[in-house]
């Protein structure tokens, strides 16, 4: 769904995720400012093979909802996608949360490169503990916000996490979301070579190591029940996981003490424990 010769950096995970949009039928994208906007191109040219509406940050899910309802009134079949980065999600979080609760008929896709990369790498709420950015030059001292868990707490219609490291899994989730109705949220992990400071050819390796270490857990939540995705299932058990230090070492952005690495390990265990509770149907989940 994207033409070559676009403005993405070498090894860009967002452009890779944009290619996968061809899994969704009749897509229309609402896109706030961010790296994605730059990739989509400068007027009068566009690199996107689909309709894109450029919108202000905070309004993304609201615009997507309006478009979706409008198309319904006109009798046009369309899958409206709110395509955000983690920056737009920070700024438009209340609209996102409200949209999830209203069960708007949209697909919210967040490509998360864990900082405001388009404006030169400032820390976002998704930036993990210890990551150096221009606003946290000594390494961030606050843990990341886990948007997947928050959206699960909304008991949203469909929630999935994906990564560019396992593209078939990502494509399957896009395909599935395109066929469902109601609010669908896909959180895509997107390792950014210039921002995370690793060579451009390592995008896939870094993304896979995030899954292998448990720093990124792959799951799908549908009809009130959570299922872990097949590609990442074996890394739920601690003995199959690689140490988080090995994932951290692949990037030059981290400044972590031994205690903080232990804290990251602990938080992974905590996240998996919480996720396991969503494996039971909601009624018995008291």
């Amino acid at each position: 769904m994207i033409y070559p010769g676009n403005a993405s950096c070498q090894g860009c995970p967002i452009s890779l995720a944009m290619r996968c949009l061809d899994e969704i039928e009749n897509p229309v994208v609402a896109m706030p400012a961010g790296c994605s906007t730059v990739i989509a191109g400068l007027h009068p040219h566009s690199a996107m093979k689909l309709a894109v509406v450029h919108v202000p940050f905070a309004s993304t899910p609201a615009v997507a909802c309006g478009l979706s309802e409008g198309y319904k009134k006109l009798g046009i079949k369309a899958n409206v996608i709110a395509w955000m980065g983690d920056g737009a999600l920070d700024i438009g979080f209340s609209a996102f949360s409200a949209s999830a609760m209203r069960n708007d008929d949209i697909i919210a896709i967040v490509v998360d490169n864990e900082a405001y990369m388009n404006t030169g790498n400032q820390a976002s709420l998704s930036t993990p503990l210890g990551a150096k950015t221009t606003t946290s030059p000594m390494g961030k001292r606050i843990a990341r916000r886990n948007v997947g868990l928050i959206t699960l707490a909304h008991h949203a219609n469909y929630v999935a996490t994906a990564t560019v490291g396992y593209i078939q899994d990502l494509r399957a989730k896009f395909r599935k979301a395109g066929k469902l109705e109601g609010f669908r949220f896909i959180h895509v992990h997107a390792p950014c070579p210039p921002g995370w400071k690793f060579p451009s050819e390592k995008t896939i390796e870094v993304a896979r190591k995030a899954v292998m270490s448990g720093a990124w857990v792959l799951y799908e939540y549908e009809k009130g029940i959570l299922e872990f995705s097949a590609v990442g299932k074996k890394f739920l058990e601690k003995k199959n996981r690689i140490p988080i230090a090995e994932y951290v070492r692949t990037q030059s952005r981290f400044a972590l003490s031994d205690e903080e690495i232990a804290r990251l390990e602990r938080e992974i265990d905590e996240e998996i424990e919480i996720l396991l509770r969503f494996k039971k149907p909601r009624d018995s989940n008291s």
Binding site: Y3, N6, S46, M48
Partner: peptide, 17 residues
């Protein structure tokens, strides 16, 4: 005139990078 048109090489021939 306000609507961007999809095309190859919206950022030029990127092979030069």
């Amino acid at each position: 005139p306000l609507i961007s048109k999809a095309k190859m090489a919206s950022a030029g021939k990127t092979g030069g990078w």
